[in-house]
Structure formats: structure tokens, C-alpha cells
Design a protein around this nucleic acid. Structure first.
Ligand SMILES: [Mn+2]
Ligand SMILES: [Mn+2]
Ligand SMILES: [Zn+2]
Ligand SMILES: [Zn+2]
Lengths: 119, 119
DNA sequence: AATTACGTGCAACAGTATTGCAAAGTTATC
DNA sequence: GATAACTTTGCAATACTGTTGCACGTAATT
């Protein structure tokens, strides 16, 4: 199962929801995939994004990813096709927080239309 | 009801979830508040944030807000107290998207500890 | 072989968001 | 003031995602 789920993420090269992954199999239970994803996440193979679409999505990390601040990147949710892409090549600017606020983590989601969905 | 819900948002000056708003009343149904918030949102009185906490939160807009790109701002979720603040005074940097991606909207959530929760 | 550990499916449950419907309340019209 | 039209509210039901308990089968370990 782990190899199969990993394969799905590897093949798609974008962030997929639990449901979307489930769709790619015929007879695998949600909970099995859920637990597989959890294992992946515990071992820093994948990261998850809450893009506001209602379902958390999962995507492969880069080889050298430690899922720490250094690996922060934007995510892009297409409002037409609903696909979510990792924008790993765009630098995340430092945010100048007001006094007293302490930066730990961030979730930056950009919405718009993706290359596949341009009129 | 509208005046009361507006009052709660006005008094708290931070983003509140439906449940948190519900808590501030004795005998008001969730759905009533839900529909009130929807009305507010349709009329650009409030905006909503999905900060990844599991519940969408709502906060008052500024007087001149049109909930468009110009009114985009960061939101800060405190990982200790769970409170969500609008950081309206920090500029959102322009993002240099790859070819073919079209910026429409964004949701930038920063997580960390808020001034109330510093050790 | 017996024991242990692990993976899987099923079913149940939790939390949030959302809607249909009828009752209650309000406003407009005569 | 009575009636009708419209709006707001509460209740209950539902949808959807995420999560967990438990039983069972399979593989590894002794
Ligand atoms: Mn990503
Ligand atoms: Mn805000
Ligand atoms: Zn698209
Ligand atoms: Zn705090």
C-alpha cells in the first residue's frame, strides 16, 4: 500500500486530497490511505496543505526536505480545476511581524487560474 | 441579531469562529448566526479566514474595505491560545508567479505565539 | 508451534458547515 | 385594525472530512 500511495503522489506531482488518492484505487479503504499518509508525514516524505478547499492535500517533499522553515513554499489553488500545486521555486519573503508576535510556521495559499485553465 | 453579532465582532477585534460567536450568546441557534455572518459577508462587512484550525473565522472589515486584492492582509494564528489576528498593517509582497499562473486571491496565514502568550 | 507485531477493512464517531421546513415575528397594504 | 406578504429564527436533518476502536489476517520472531 505504501508503495502504491507513494506512486500516486509521485505520478501526479501535485497536492492531492485523501479522497482524490482514494479514487485512484478500486478497493482500498479511506482509513488505510489516511494512515499511510500519516506515516509518510511522520517520516517527512510528504507535507500537507490546507488550501481552503475543504480537504487537506498531500504532496511529496523534495529529497532534502525536512519540513522545517527552510522548506516553506507557496501553494497555488486553481479556482477552476481545483488542482493544487507546490510553488517550490519562489522564495517566501520574510514577514516583519509586529512586536510580540513570534513566527513559527506559515501557510501561504495563492488562488487563481493555473496554466491548464487559461482561457 | 445582526446588531448583536456585529457587536461581538466589534468588541473582540479579532477573527472569531462560528462556535466562538455562538458561545457569547445564551440561546441563539448556530444556523441563525451562520446566516447572519453570510449576510455580513455578502455585504462586505466582514471577511472570513480559514486559518487551518478547523473552523473558519470571521472578522470585521475596515470601513473602506471592498474585500478585494487591495484589502489582502496576513492572518496570525497563535498556536498556544488559538486566537487569530488580522495583521492589517503589514504589506503583502507581490508574488512573482511562474508563467501561466494567474493571481486572483490569497490566504496567508502565519502561525506562532501571540503577544499574550509569550513565555 | 506459539507469540508478537503489523497492516487492513469495517463501522462508528466527531466536528464543522449547510439546508429544508415550519413557526414566529415584522412590515406593508388595504 | 385586519390581512397578506415578507423576513427572521429555531430545529432537525444532512453532507463532508477527518479520525479511531476493534477484529481479523498475515508476516516476522522466538
Ligand atoms: Mn507543497
Ligand atoms: Mn482579517
Ligand atoms: Zn486549473
Ligand atoms: Zn496566543
Amino acid at each position: 500500500m505504501r508503495e502504491l500511495v507513494y506512486g500516486v503522489l509521485d505520478k501526479n506531482r501535485k497536492a492531492l486530497s485523501l479522497y482524490e488518492i482514494e479514487q485512484q484505487f478500486d478497493n482500498v479503504d479511506r482509513s488505510t490511505i489516511f494512515r499511510t499518509l500519516k506515516t509518510f508525514q511522520d517520516n517527512l516524505l510528504i507535507h500537507s496543505v490546507d488550501d481552503g478547499s475543504g480537504a487537506v492535500k498531500y504532496a511529496l517533499c523534495d529529497d532534502d526536505c525536512t519540513c522545517s522553515l527552510d522548506d516553506l513554499h507557496y501553494h497555488f489553488l486553481c479556482t477552476k480545476c481545483g488542482q493544487t500545486h507546490c510553488l517550490k521555486n519562489i522564495p517566501i519573503p520574510a514577514v516583519d511581524l509586529p512586536e510580540g508576535f513570534n513566527f513559527e510556521n506559515a501557510n501561504f495559499v495563492i488562488k487563481g487560474t493555473c496554466p491548464n485553465c487559461q482561457g
